[in-house]
Design a protein around this nucleic acid. Structure first.
Lengths: 333, 333
DNA sequence: TGACAGAGTACAAACGTTTTCTTGTGGTCT
DNA sequence: AGACCACAAGAAAACGTTTGTACTCTGTCA
């Protein structure tokens, strides 16, 4: 029932080879026959079978993306721009949600492997060695994660943290809590690294709490731990946790930023509309998504030997309403 | 380089047919040979080529989903549950973002057609007739949209609106603005329908504004129009617009809910954390996503003649902090 | 003892493309 | 006039599976 290349060939009174060429190598076929073939193909509503095509070419015309949580707008932001760029380039997108399970991340990549030409991996949890192993068999580009020899689009998380600490220090904070994300997440390690370095420099004490699941509920739980920790500011791993913490603090009647300051990370749309609006670090999500796809595509037709570039993107602090000077009672100590 | 079924066959000293059957029709092959084949396949890391398989079976093991905006947590919520259910069933997921362009929605379905066994369509914009036409060639399941003869998972938007109006009427509101979504969106029409019916019943006047793009900026613009409309409550098409409106009202110094009440629709996570927390209607997104996939899968192996069921899911109002009685000055008139 | 059944396996066709190799045209040089 | 070339187009092989058909056993029944 579905129309094949053979049908087009018969109707246009040419061989299948000619049809194939008319569609994908225009210069190899006479203009007038080509026009005829195109007309017939169009009339019949012919669409080549990607399966048959990829069987012989070895290319699928798809790319994959695996993320830890489709419920997190940060990752769907990435997904959106990846999808957009991919479609521009004529690629379709397969998506996998690992639910923050490293084993699932790996399995998803393997499942996709034969169906895609390459995958954009936003998987903080999986181990470096495993990534290298996966890269042997599929072409990978990492997002927000640096692994030697593998292409990546990176956002300067450590730099963002430096800006946060500098801002808090300037306001007069001397003792802050870090509400940590998953322990083995690259982003978390990176943010922590920036945090520690900056804390040392600005002579700020950091109390590290967690790890917490990097979700709303994680932030709620973290807030409770933080109020017992005798700090004047909460530095959350990401915006979602910060929102959870904010809600919990409000429920407990603790004023933000009067009693406690709170910072997030990612600058989701919703960071601007919560109350008070969240001080956070903006991430170049769009650029990163596009960049990751460009890197991947470049790697694909550049052949094996192409340089696996790493793309570094800047972040910047956005000061809104959740940070202020610590309360007087705390300032002198 | 990649390992094929032939490699496994040689190594296991059987024919390719036996390998194929050992993997997909266990009962057709001797237990001991099967064990041997499996061992070899495993050792060699053999993964069947989906392209070759689908070429002959006509099935891809993929399903597609197309949504109007991956930036909207409502749709990514659907996506998340669709992805989860699909993976349980051994299917991979192709995703398309149409950016609210009906033409793109249609094109995406066509592009996917040959790569998927069916698609879940969350496309409010496209016309009924086009949907019917698409359904001729691909199996479709609709989400949040009713078209005769086509399977669908539906959430009772009209019912949600009735609950909103009843709530507002009880508080004493007599004149409300509806901040409309895209004019030809099914959800918008459905919400409007419920709204009108309930308004008539409760003797509430509705001023309809818009249409606006169903995004944050749309809500911002809508708020400005609404304050000029001499109403006491804003009924937004969805949460995102409500959040935009809320932010704008705050910027203009208008108190919510003291001066104006605002309602949303969808109950995104963020509706609970904005300030004041948003009164809205909860949608059974998870159930709808799973249901849509189940319907689709059922339709696939039920053959052509299977009944195209429609799944109806209830919604319910969640009263939070953005609704209250209208100001005294307005109440008497 | 011979026909027959059933289990287990192998052979080969088919799926819809792309691509290499070949053939058949004219046309342009020497 | 013969050799060569560019251009168009066709024939057929190949990609990696699944599956219908055919074959070979081994054992059972009359």
């Amino acid at each position: 029932m579905p129309v094949t290349i053979r049908d087009v060939a018969e109707q246009a009174r040419v061989s299948v080879a000619t049809v194939s060429r008319a569609l994908s190598s225009p210069h190899l076929v006479n203009q007038v026959t080509r026009a005829r073939v195109l007309a017939v193909a169009n009339e019949l509503g012919y669409r080549p079978s990607p399966a048959a095509r990829s069987l012989i070419t070895g290319r699928t015309g798809n790319i994959g993306i695996v993320v830890p949580d489709l419920g997190n707008p940060f990752f769907t932001g990435v997904l959106k721009s990846v999808q957009a760029r991919a479609r521009e380039a004529g690629y379709a997108v397969l998506v996998g949600d690992s639910d923050e399970d490293p084993a699932a991340e790996e399995e998803l990549v393997k499942m996709m492997a034969k169906q895609v030409d390459g995958v954009v991996l936003c998987s903080p949890g999986i181990k470096d060695a495993q990534i290298v192993a996966l890269a042997e068999h599929s072409s990978l580009t990492l997002l927000n994660r640096r692994v030697r020899g593998i292409g990546a689009a990176l956002m300067d998380s450590a730099g963002g943290m430096r800006q946060i600490v500098a801002h808090l220090a300037e306001l007069g904070h001397r003792r802050c809590a870090y509400l940590a994300g998953p322990r083995n997440s690259w982003s978390n390690r990176e943010r922590r690294r920036g945090l520690r370095a900056a804390a040392r420099q600005h002579e700020v004490d950091i109390v590290e709490l967690g790890p917490f699941p990097p979700r709303y509920e994680g932030g709620v739980a973290a807030a409770d731990r933080a109020v017992d920790a005798d700090v004047t500011a909460l530095i959350a791993y990401n915006d979602i946790m910060a929102l959870g913490a904010l809600a919990r603090l409000r429920d407990r009647g603790i004023d933000v930023p009067g009693g406690l300051s709170v910072t997030g990370f990612d600058d989701l749309v919703f960071a601007a509309v919560c109350a008070p609006p969240l001080t956070t670090v903006a991430m170049p999500v769009r650029a990163a998504g596009r960049g990751a796809v460009d890197l991947l595509l470049g790697q694909l037709d550049g052949g094996e030997g192409s340089p696996r570039t790493q793309l570094d993107l800047a972040t910047h602090l956005i000061v809104r309403g959740t940070t202020a000077a610590p309360p007087r009672s705390r300032r002198k100590r």
